[in-house]
Design a protein around this nucleic acid. Sequence first.
DNA 1: GAGCGGATGAGACAACCGTCACATCGTGCG
DNA 2: CGCACGATGTGACGGTTGTCTCATCCGCTC
Lengths: 236, 236
Amino acid sequence: MGEVQQVLSGVPLFAALDEEALGRLAARSVARDYGTGHLLFAAGDDCRGVYVVVSGRVRVFRTSPDGREQVLHTEGPGDAVAELPLFDGGQYPASAITEVESRLVFVPRAEFEALYRDSPDVAQAVIRELGRRLRHLVQVTETLAFRDVAARLAMYLAQWAEQRGTATAGGVELTLDRTREEMSLELGTARESVSRAFKQLAGNGLIVRLSRTRIRIPSVERLRTLARPGERPRYS
Amino acid sequence: MGEVQQVLSGVPLFAALDEEALGRLAARSVARDYGTGHLLFAAGDDCRGVYVVVSGRVRVFRTSPDGREQVLHTEGPGDAVAELPLFDGGQYPASAITEVESRLVFVPRAEFEALYRDSPDVAQAVIRELGRRLRHLVQVTETLAFRDVAARLAMYLAQWAEQRGTATAGGVELTLDRTREEMSLELGTARESVSRAFKQLAGNGLIVRLSRTRIRIPSVERLRTLARPGERPRYS
DNA sequence: GAGCGGATGAGACAACCGTCACATCGTGCG
DNA sequence: CGCACGATGTGACGGTTGTCTCATCCGCTC
């Protein structure tokens, strides 16, 4: 089994495919390495196919006319990027760029289309995937609409702690592999505001800064509480 | 053909069904009238089925802890509401309420599931529908993240003018069947801010207020321009 | 046509945040 | 070790917006 096929077999979207279909798909797909900051496609481009992340990380975002950026989601190993336009024949609604050095497999459009047209299981997987996206976007929307930056950051850290945090005696410890700048793009705010929000959370004892890139969260529970209090947020 | 079947046959989601399948579906679905402001379901509820709008309008939204609301989308006649949780077995990500007196058909979950499992065409339609939602949410997200209220309103009115506006000598005329309050919920802002934005647009000659509920847009083109200028918005 | 109530407009005020400017920190390199 | 550069923290400032309050306006009913 070639490397490409190996990778594709681990992608939820293609989980339902049998050996043969997978092999055929792999044969027509291409793996390639990209450096940091490579633009895979821009919002408005016509869709040529779907990318699957082998390693690294891809950021999907919208750009405002005056250059600001709002990250819609980031995808890591095993995730697919840009399935959406394949179905309605439309254009990419957002742009995508590699955040770090990444290896991606590109599946041409025609190939992918034939696939889910024939296989109900794949269609099912696609629906599930779109559903996941939709749920996530609802989350993003809510975040932008409601909370102030500190609450958004609290939410963000709490969610992150549950994924990659490691439990210790003093609470969950967490390494942040992103710069404040990158976080600011996801939170829909400015770099400086993220810094200030960190200070605020630290001041309230909700987080402890162990180093620049590492924090401890004494209680994820309490952190979440700040993100959704019954009342509007008010800090000392 | 019963009333319910008549309605269902016009819904894009069920367009691919043959007479028989449609009849079976209709037989197990229920039509019902709701008054204004009836809560169909709340975010976090378990999903019991899908609603199809026969007449009226349904608002889908998220509520913040302190009571603010962000409208995600509104659906009118022929549209389906709440398909999402049917696929991943999750809960409703948002709440839904009738904005006006409405007639809705309720399709039970089990019925709907059997349907798209058997029919690839229906699955296809479902995917398309989810895609539409996704695109719309990207739009909403961008709007919230980037533009100020006046720009958001401009965008909103422009889009609306193209749908229901009527061309006249002086430009496109448009009747707004929503209160400022309802608009504010869609635009993610406050009622007063919408008023201010209207004033601003009128001051710049981008819109002309004919009456409280009716406006004329001399140039939809120019209105859109304000919504996406190369530079950040600046008004006199 | 008088009265009522919801919708709208308008002013004042403070909070929050984006931006600019600059200090500081850390890391890698020469 | 010193330098350089990028990332980060901090302070100041102004603009936009949410909220509160009140004045108007409009449609409706009696």
